[in-house]
Write a protein that binds this DNA or RNA. Structure first.
Length: 152
DNA sequence: GCCAACGTTGGC
DNA sequence: GCCAACGTTGGC
């Protein structure tokens, strides 16, 4: 099982939205590196740290899991969608998405400042300067530490 | 609102 | 293929 960190702006789609919906499509990724993680590296039931970006404060809000392997992001074909990309066609889709299912919401968000104070997590990608990638692999050691020491 | 970091685009 | 210009992300 691999572990991922996936960013979402909570004013767009939050952990509470995922809890309510049970699962969701991860549409709108328009970055090749993040897309390739979804297309090539994700497996069913991979764990997901659900990260709230552009929030006050930002941080890890809960856990999710991959519940459907990648398939074409058809929002790219919809002219009405914010995620429309005329270069992507049904014959040759450029963008792909996975589905993600709710696992749990943390009682308390693990804030970015708190993550930064945790020396065991200093190597996490999300803590590196200029780290903008919206889907990132997470080391098992970091995931285990979070689960064992930072929840509740 | 600012701005650093990064990815993409397009002229050459 | 290089790289300047531009747009976006996202913390602060």
């Amino acid at each position: 099982m691999k572990i991922w960190l996936m960013k979402s702006e909570p004013n767009c789609y939050s952990i509470d939205d995922l809890k309510k919906d049970g699962k969701t499509q991860w549409e709108g990724v328009r970055n090749y590196q993040a897309r390739n993680f979804m297309m090539k590296d994700m497996s069913l039931n991979d764990a997901v740290l659900f990260y709230h970006s552009n929030a006050k404060p930002p941080g890890i809000a809960g856990l999710a899991k991959v519940c459907r392997l990648s398939y074409p992001d058809y929002f790219a074909w919809d002219e009405e969608s914010d995620y429309f990309d005329p270069r992507s066609t049904q014959e040759k889709p450029i963008w792909h998405m996975v589905d993600v299912a709710f696992v749990k919401k943390f009682d308390q968000l693990i804030s970015l400042p708190k993550l930064r104070l945790t020396s065991e997590l200093a190597d996490m990608k999300v803590l590196q300067k200029g780290s903008r990638l919206s889907i990132q692999p997470v080391d098992k050691s970091h995931y285990d530490f979070i689960c064992d020491h930072m929840i509740n």
